[in-house]
Amino acid sequence: MEYIISILLSGISVGGQYALIAIGYTMVYGILRLINFAHGDVFMVAGLMGIYLSASMPLYVAIPMVIVLTAILAFFIERAAYKPLRSAPRMSVMISAIGVSYLLQNMATYITGAQPMTYPTIPGLSDTVQIAGTPTKWAVLLTPVLVAVLVVALTVLINKTKVGMAMRAVSKDFETAQLMGIKINTVISVTFVIGSVLAAVGSILYFTNYSAVTPTIGALPGLKAFVAAVFGGIGSIPGAVIGAFIIGICETVIKGLPSAWDVSVFSDAFTFALLVIVLVFKPTGLFGEKATDKV
């Protein structure tokens, strides 16, 4: 019983971290129709920044700094790598995203000297509590709450504010939105900034749990978060969050199955199998809108 609870708890927390990354994917895809392959690496860079900044300044300064710097990084990536290709075919932009991911990984390897770095312990988050007899980190408990708060805030932003209205307009129809006087570049930048802020928050929670940061660590959570976004229906924020929780829980359950079955290698494969099944049977995902192909 305790074992089941501990698996469920860690599943929910992993799911929450995926959710924070997935929102960035789903928002960018909703507006630019671009799989931002570099998003997972932005997440990794946020982790590295956390390590370097917390070494030189107190945590209450370092954590906001991490979030701000990640947002700035994402802003520059968008301006440098995606904006020049706005009228190019979608494949070029995707290749550019792959290039950015490659660049970020190599930069991280260069700066860290390919050594895995250890994430600092954050007092409060790293402390353990007893839940139904199982020791758990505060970060695990905090994650779903934080996700819920951030999602509500984001939904309000998108539905009630002017920027949110502009975002919805742009994701409905790029060109018409432009004709209506919406400054597309600003909207896109805001989207990238929001996505990366959430990824930075996600990185703090994630690396409090798994403290080793390596240059390639962002790739897999990134891809899984993308699968979550597809699963929930790309472009839909609640969909991405629910998808992420389902994937996170399934993954930890598979990892926690009896070792005699020896199926833990399939915890990653499961996510992708889920992706293929969703794409084949319900390409719009759980909450996605039906897209029509125009000739």
Partner: peptide, 8 residues
């Protein structure tokens, strides 16, 4: 993304 998933 689906072919990438199959490779994994």
């Amino acid at each position: 993304i689906a072919t990438l998933g199959f490779a994994e």
